[in-house]
């Protein structure tokens, strides 16, 4: 319980101006990564607000980048028009191929972005506010032991005809929290382990493997816990986060990927000795013309290796260190 008391914050505890001072004192640089796929409706507002508030008014961010998975809408055009650096995930580390999925974008961001700290913020937030960034940077900038800060919220889901004042986190409550309770009880202190907003020190981030899709947050929590223990985590209450609700079948597919990631880890950590080879087929049902139809989904949660093991990254970082040393 002491971790919950000492490492849980509210964004109101942090003043962006003071965080800028702390960042300067520590000689840190901070990059913001917004992973996107068809987010033209919300990405422009995120970019404008973060640039205006956290680069112009308060020099808290050194870089704002959109890493796009091949949007078919105007996402890249809109983000670039408002001043973000826009990259196509497929163009980053091209020799390593390109996989569809948010985790892939987050992994490639480690190579592309320059910050000592990377903040990840999803692009689908409807009530975006600078607190989504400075609230996550606060614990990192005031405690050198903290390396990974997760967001949590009261998350109303936007629905037809209005918003619902409570709910959200269904996969967390139905799947992840019961699994953590069974296998990693300490991790249940993290209120929303699947939240898409977090700030991480590069020194930690580059050592983490990356599932390419929805398993990425679950794997991070388990891997950071295994590497550095609870003291490396903090969490910040960012109040409300309004986003579009996902239909239940999509949540089912998300849960399937998370379960693949989770079982892989309990096996590799030796927590469960014997597991059969896991299948990759998820069956769901839909009704068409009054008849039930089975829909088969082949789902495999691929994983990227820790970035520090990638040769191009080692070369790049060495070059950057050399350039910094020569001024």
């Amino acid at each position: 319980m002491s971790w919950l008391r000492t490492n849980t914050f509210h964004h109101g505890q942090f003043d962006p101006a003071r965080l800028v001072e702390a960042k300067r004192e520590q000689g840190l640089s901070v990059s913001l990564c917004i992973p996107t796929l068809n987010e033209e409706r919300t990405v422009g507002k995120e970019v404008v607000i973060f640039i205006d508030e956290l680069m112009r008014r308060h020099q808290l961010l050194d870089e704002i980048a959109v890493i796009d998975s091949g949007s078919a809408d105007r996402t890249r055009e809109v983000a670039a028009a408002f001043g973000a650096d826009v990259y196509s995930a497929a163009d980053i580390l091209p020799a390593h191929g390109d996989n569809p999925g948010k985790g892939e974008n987050l992994w490639k961001a480690i190579y592309q972005l320059r910050g000592d700290v990377i903040v990840y913020v999803d692009a689908d937030i409807k009530n975006i506010h600078p607190r989504f960034v400075y609230g996550l940077l606060g614990p990192l900038l005031q405690d050198p032991e903290v390396g990974y800060v997760k967001a949590f919220y009261d998350r109303p889901l936007a629905e037809a005809g209005g918003t619902r004042p409570s709910g959200g986190g269904r996969v967390t409550e139905i799947l992840v929290r019961p699994l953590f309770s069974l296998f990693f009880p300490e991790l249940t202190a993290i209120v929303q382990p699947l939240s898409g907003e977090y700030a991480v020190r590069r020194s930690l981030l580059e050592r983490l493997p990356f599932p390419i899709c929805y398993g990425v947050e679950t794997s991070h929590i388990i891997d950071v816990y295994h590497m550095a223990g609870m003291a490396a985590f903090a969490q910040t209450d960012l109040d409300r986060r309004v986003h579009t609700n996902q239909p239940t079948p999509a949540l089912g597919r998300m849960a399937f990927r998370i379960l693949q990631t989770f079982l892989k880890r309990v096996r590799s950590l030796g927590i469960v000795q014997e597991l059969p080879d896991l299948g990759t087929l998820l069956r769901q049902f839909q009704v068409s013309d009054g008849r039930y139809e089975q829909v088969d989904w082949q789902i495999t949660e691929l994983e990227r290796p820790p970035m520090i093991e990638v040769a191009e990254y080692q070369t790049l970082r060495a070059a950057l260190r050399a350039a910094a040393a020569t001024g």
């Binding site: 033209e40 409706r41 919300t42 422009g44 507002k45 404008v48 105007r74 055009e77 809109v78 028009a81 408002f82 409807k126 009530n127 936007a158 005809g161 209005g162 918003t163 309004v242």
Partner: peptide, 11 residues
């Protein structure tokens, strides 16, 4: 007040 007040920015 119960309408979706999300603002969207295009260029």
């Amino acid at each position: 007040g119960d309408l979706d007040h999300t603002v969207s920015l295009a260029p």
